[in-house]
């Protein structure tokens, strides 16, 4: 596969992820279970991240996933779970074998596509797409804006970066301990 800009290929993915985002947003506001709604919201965030990446704003895409789909949604979910609003049975919107197989197939398709795209982008000279260059003139070379961010993050601030994960682990263990339903003997 060469690395020239394919309007059809680009347009197909733009509409694919745009439609998924809209559908997820509608599902997000129509779900009864707050946990399911929150999970659909994460889906919206992921689709938006894909659109950012397609605009060659890889960094904003990554941050979208990290900050919104990661941190903020985890906080939402913590609050929802700590308040015990959702019943465990309501969590799954996908029930039965058929829908599950379909969901798995969609997942595999997206994974395969990501891998193909990754291969074609890493190999060879990357020719910036004309349409994209108009939108993001500053994005340069292969890494886009990732490399200047990744360098300090994984060199000078490596320790702080790793400590953040310990902090999140401590927060998760603490929230689980406090939020966990107690056994029958301790039932309040």
């Amino acid at each position: 596969m060469d690395n020239t800009f394919h309007p059809l290929f680009y347009g197909f993915h733009f509409y694919l992820f745009g439609l998924i985002a809209i559908a997820s947003a509608i599902l997000f506001v129509t779900r009864k279970s707050p946990v399911a709604a929150a999970l659909w919201l994460i889906n919206v965030m992921f689709c938006l991240a894909v659109l950012y990446v397609m605009l060659d704003a890889q960094f904003i895409g990554a941050i979208q996933v990290l900050v919104y789909a990661g941190a903020i949604m985890v906080v939402f979910l913590f609050v929802v779970m700590l308040l015990n609003l959702g019943q465990p049975d309501d969590l799954a919107d996908i029930r039965g074998t058929g829908p599950r197989l379909a969901a798995g197939a969609v997942g595999l398709a997206i994974l395969a596509e990501v891998m193909v795209l990754a291969r074609s982008r890493i190999q060879g000279e990357y020719a910036p797409a004309a349409a994209v260059e108009l939108l993001v003139p500053a994005a340069d070379a292969v890494g886009g804006v990732i490399a200047p961010v990744a360098g300090p993050l994984f060199r000078e601030h490596l320790l702080a970066f790793e400590l953040t994960s310990i902090l999140l682990l401590a927060a998760i263990v603490g929230a689980v301990v406090i939020g966990k339903k107690q056994g029958p003997a301790d039932a309040r």
């Binding site: 702080a160 400590l163 953040t164 310990i166 902090l167 401590a170 927060a171 263990v173 603490g174 929230a175 301990v177 406090i178 107690q182 301790d186 309040r188």
Partner: peptide, 20 residues
């Protein structure tokens, strides 16, 4: 700052252990 937070977050939970 991260050290302070790791310590404090764990202690917040430890203080609230006794749910009853």
């Amino acid at each position: 700052f991260l050290g302070i937070e790791i310590m404090s977050v764990a202690i917040y939970a430890l203080v609230g252990l006794n749910r009853r």
